[in-house]
Amino acid sequence: MGYLAKFRLWRGDHGTGSLVDYEVEVNEGEVVLDVLHRIQATQANDLAIRWNCKAGKCGSCSAEVNGRPRLMCLTRMNTFEEDEVVTVTPLRAFPVIRDLVTDVSYNYAKAREVPAFQPPEGLQPGEYRMAQEDVQRSQEFRKCIECFLCQNTCHAIRDHEENKRAFAGPRVLMRVAELDMHPLDTLDRKRMAQDDLGLGYCNITKCCTEVCPEHIHITDNALIPLKERVADQKYDPIRWLGSKIRVRSKSE
């Protein structure tokens, strides 16, 4: 039932490192994370891996398996040939801490820039009434497990370190869309999405959607509608006129 598999893991820290080969037993039904745990327990006690639930629910074990951004706990070994070398490297868009663990603090810093949910004045807890159809859209985005695979894959971040300052990435912009579609939220974050969080950097190539382990339609259901809403607001002739007539608009 079991066989010896060839693994190639990136080992190292911030600056330096290299791919190291391991031969390791693999058993029926296992996922990449199981095999890495076996290497850790028997051959490399100090192999750094970040993981928690091992069931695709917490989004901790993100890495790149044969170049593809994935959750290691959901990558089954039977998707590889037995003689295939499985190469596991850390997420490319974030600085390496050690081995397969990266510093993902960028994502948390950007998330903190999005103003929180703001309910209507005077609405007391327990009085909230919302229809299922109305909460469903935001619920899809709240399935997000914050694995940051979308952030890692989005080429506006992955290939352009310099964009990180101005661009918050798909995860964070999806959060803006989620709040914008929340039936009871009262705050308008559309201008902010465009001006401060860099919505314009997204050119809807759908790479984020492709790697999402929760199968959230990030581009189609969150980012494109958000872009449309921003455009509606920005290019609405009446609003445009209004902004010119007023002495000073809000952001000036």
Partner: peptide, 24 residues
């Protein structure tokens, strides 16, 4: 417990709903 759940809703939680719009 009920107050603690309602409080989550006021912080942005989106629970599944009943037909009359309450928390299912």
């Amino acid at each position: 417990a009920p107050d603690r759940v309602w409080e989550l809703e006021s912080w942005g939680a989106l629970f599944d709903r009943t037909k009359d719009g309450k928390i299912s």
